[in-house]
Design a protein around this nucleic acid. Structure first.
Length: 373
DNA sequence: TCTGGGGTCCTAGGACCC
DNA sequence: TCTGGGGTCCTAGGACCC
């Protein structure tokens, strides 16, 4: 989906179309309404507090702001951009709508988050271009929103292709297009090569995907793990055998929060305890809604210097209720030396099982077969 | 007053078992 | 006085993605 959160907001506030609009900011507020009925929008330049941009309209991106940028920095670059708070309930609604519309045409769908999917078109009769056009029409019909589509022989190339013509584009990439259309691109366009790997490759003089493809395995293996080096060469040659995964079960569930101001471990002990209680309760709600339980409970702490520490504890039995999570989280927290102020606190549950399901039976029934006695 | 929140996967070391 | 080889589980941190 194109600038998804921002595009959903523009459906609500069509008068903002064509303007730089930014979504984000934990303390951003909904637009007010003046006595004469006109809406009163917040400016990015007036924002005070913590927070990052989650989405920016293309007009805002033209001013140099982008997602994950701190709002205080955005305020310097684009003070007059409109600021709206995120409304995840609304985005999830539109996410469901576009996915349902797409599934009518191409049911083999892999969820990649709120605004992105992979589709396996292999068994569909129509040609790629007709399918892509039909998909875009269905998404627009269901949501009023535009998306960008890449069609290619595998997920790796389709992801790159979908970014080549944004917004509202269709890009078809075939096996024969590798050298002309993929190799000139920077290595960072590959899903899985992030800022760190890109920087290290850059130090090796490898900037484009084509340059990566021409690098001997041994040279890469000297810098990266054997496995990652091998993978780098595979993807540089456009090779990717990963299937479209239609069904999956969650591996972990977590809740975390960054405080408005850094909290002192002793002076703010009470409020920290309340925050931890709240996180555990929300986590228990999440687990309850998904009818999941977990054996491993973890906490995450971020200090005022942004250093992040985690501790986990694996229990003999899976738990799902707030009290049990809270107790385990408390034990984890005790193992972290708290010598600086805290910026963030988070709680996570992993090693998930369906309570009463086969997983849990396996985990709790003890079976012994001693062949040698 | 730089730097959100929800995830997945990988690595590496240590405990422990046969 | 020198200590194998395989396996699983647990833990902590980090890279990366949306």
């Amino acid at each position: 989906m194109d600038a998804f959160y921002a595009s959903v907001e523009l459906l609500r506030y069509p008068e903002l179309r064509g303007l730089p609009v930014v979504i984000g900011g934990r303390s951003a507020t909904r637009p007010g309404v003046a006595p004469d009925g006109t809406r009163l929008y917040s400016r990015v330049g007036d924002y005070v507090g913590r927070g990052v941009i989650t989405t920016a309209t293309y007009e805002a991106r033209a001013l140099g702001v982008h997602s994950a940028m701190g709002l205080m920095k955005a305020a310097r670059l684009a003070p007059d951009a409109i600021l709206l708070p995120a409304d995840f309930t609304e985005y999830r609604l539109y996410s469901r709508r576009f996915k349902e519309a797409v599934a009518q045409i191409a049911p083999r769908m892999e969820d990649r988050g709120i605004d992105e999917i992979y589709l396996d078109l292999t068994d569909l009769e129509q040609d790629s271009l007709s399918l892509a056009r039909a998909l875009k029409a269905a998404v627009r019909e269901a949501t009023g929103l535009s998306c960008s589509i890449g069609v290619a022989p595998n997920k790796l190339l389709s992801k790159i292709a979908s970014d080549l013509d944004k917004p509202d584009g269709i890009t078809l990439i075939g096996e024969g297009d590798l050298q002309a259309r993929i190799w000139p691109l920077p290595v960072g366009r590959i899903n899985g090569i992030g800022p760190k790997a890109q920087a290290r490759l850059g130090e090796m003089g490898i900037h484009s995907i084509g340059e990566l493809a021409g690098t001997p395995l041994g040279v890469l293996a000297a810098q990266f793990s054997e496995r990652y080096a091998h993978w780098l060469l595979e993807v540089a040659h456009g090779r990717d055998e990963r299937p479209v995964v239609v069904e999956s079960t969650p591996k972990s569930v977590s809740r975390e929060t960054t405080f408005e101001r850094d909290l002192h471990v002793r002076r703010d002990r009470v409020v920290l305890g309340q925050i931890l209680d709240g996180l555990c309760e929300r986590l228990a709600d999440d687990l309850g809604r998904k009818t999941l339980a977990g054996r491993t409970i973890g906490v995450k702490v971020r200090f005022d210097d942004f250093r992040t520490v985690t501790r986990v504890l694996t229990l003999p039995q899976a738990v799902a209720d707030a009290r049990a999570i809270r107790q385990a989280a408390g034990l984890c927290l005790k193992r972290i030396p708290l010598e600086r102020r805290l910026r963030l606190l988070g709680v996570r549950v992993e090693a998930l099982v369906l309570p009463g399901g086969a997983d849990e039976a396996l985990a709790t029934d003890e079976v012994q077969l001693d062949l040698f006695s």
